[in-house]
Design a protein around this nucleic acid. Structure first.
Lengths: 262, 262
DNA sequence: CGTCAACATATTGTCTGATAAAACATATAA
DNA sequence: TTATATGTTTTATCAGACAATATGTTGACG
């Protein structure tokens, strides 16, 4: 009621446009603690605070962001929940070794994707897909229900009829996630965030040729067909083929990126 | 200063022994918010609050656990970070659909393992290992460094010389985690928590026969050898063999559990 | 000179109370 | 009936206080 005056003026004062807080980019409707978690998490993953480092203390964050201490604390608790931090009285919050990070967490993954070495990240995700997705498709072919098949088919069809690259990528993601679900192993489903992240990275990278799109669509349809026919081995092979195709696109994009920078 | 009196008396009053809080089991050194997160998280995963349900509000939790509202809030933020909850003003905190849960999170996994259907959980983990570990071993055989090989060999040796089942399980976990690390894909490492969880579940289940142990040890040593010799295909096959052996043990344990309950 | 205990200190942990913001429900007016 | 206004409930955020806990420091004593 008294000290608040100044604060409020800074934040909601007359004509205060696009300057709500010093640095904090808080995208539409996101709360303060979420924005703080995002900011600090990004900095950690980016490498600003290497594992073992102790972060600035809560009071400091509170000051630099012009927010209450509780907001900072809640943000830190979220980062603790993702395995990035651990904190103890008197010592502060220190960054955990990378091994404890929940790399498969949606947010951590997105921070990873924003890091300087995006290309390496994409390569890692792509390799991981090689490990998991062929087997997932084989399981899906063996165990899919009719409803799950419908979802796969619909996504595949939507890919074919999509008019924008963005819509196509969305359908593509749905396609692969549906396969993971159809595989009938609950632990596979969370890996969907990886695929999502990978396809989004690809989306940024590549402006595909029309021929590439046609070919990729055929490869997807082959997967759909083999799962429909319940042929595990052939479904697995079809996925392997698709991933090999994606590998080529990535390599090609890498080449043209190199060429463009020369 | 005034209202505090009563509270403090409840919590630290004369001779208040082993009755710090109504229900909250807070194991050694764990903080209040962590204990609350644990309790609520367990209840959610267990199914007390199905997806879509709105939890009791913060004031309610605060009352039932005799803790401050901030502790409750921090706990809820942690659960949000794990994808179990989302909360909005006026509506409250509602449980997210299972698809959004970070099932591969250490804590979520442990709550899963405590759920009524442990057996199904173990089967799911075991199947997941079939999907991932053979390929991981193949990659490890191809890319291991000498230091990584040392770590694998040491863990394998420790398994052989372990005197207690507990120590053996610990070495076993280290063995498989070392292979994941040696595979050279950062995204594989977080899956170690799965293996850890699976082996712990096994540990509870099974009192292995000496012959079983001898055989299992040989299977592990075969994996170690093929990674040492850098033979990806043989390493993959060796892991598949080990997992098949584990499958049998699980089936056997299931049988004897059934037998014991009859 | 070294070792151990007492004490100071910095930082997170927790509680309390107050106010703001948001979403939903209800009532009222056109 | 529809649209607007108002109220209500809940989370969101802030502020200030005190407790708990490691760490560092100092001093006494062997």
């Amino acid at each position: 009621m008294t000290l608040n005056k100044e604060q409020n003026q800074v934040r909601t004062g007359t004509e205060s446009r696009t300057e709500p807080l010093p640095q904090l980019s808080r995208f539409a409707g996101s709360s303060v603690h979420a924005a703080i978690a995002n900011e600090i998490g990004l900095r950690i993953v980016r490498g600003d605070y290497p594992p073992g480092t102790v972060l600035p203390n809560e009071a400091k964050w509170s000051e630099t962001f012009n927010v209450g201490r509780s907001a900072v604390r809640e943000a830190i608790k979220m980062l603790m929940a993702k395995g990035l931090l651990s904190s103890r009285p008197k010592v502060g919050s220190r960054v955990e070794p990378r091994e404890r990070w929940n790399l498969l967490d949606r947010d951590v993954l997105s921070w990873y994707a924003m890091s300087p070495d995006r290309e390496k990240f994409l390569a890692t995700v792509q390799e991981f897909r090689h490990i998991v997705e062929p087997e997932a498709a084989a399981l899906a072919a063996a165990r899919r229900t009719d409803e799950q098949m419908d979802e796969i088919s619909r996504a595949c069809h939507d890919m074919g009829t999509a008019t924008t690259l963005r819509a196509r990528t969305a359908a593509d993601t749905r396609f692969h996630m549906a396969i993971l679900r159809a595989a009938g192993n609950d632990l596979l489903v969370p890996l969907g965030v990886l695929i999502e992240s990978g396809l989004e990275s690809l989306f940024v990278y590549v402006t595909r040729e029309v021929n590439d799109l046609r070919h990729a669509q055929q490869l997807h349809e082959e997967i759909e067909r083999q799962i429909r026919l319940q042929k595990p081995d052939r479904a697995r092979a079809a996925v392997t083929k698709l991933l090999a195709n994606t590998d080529e696109i990535i390599v090609g994009a890498g080449r043209s990126a190199v060429a463009a920078s020369e």
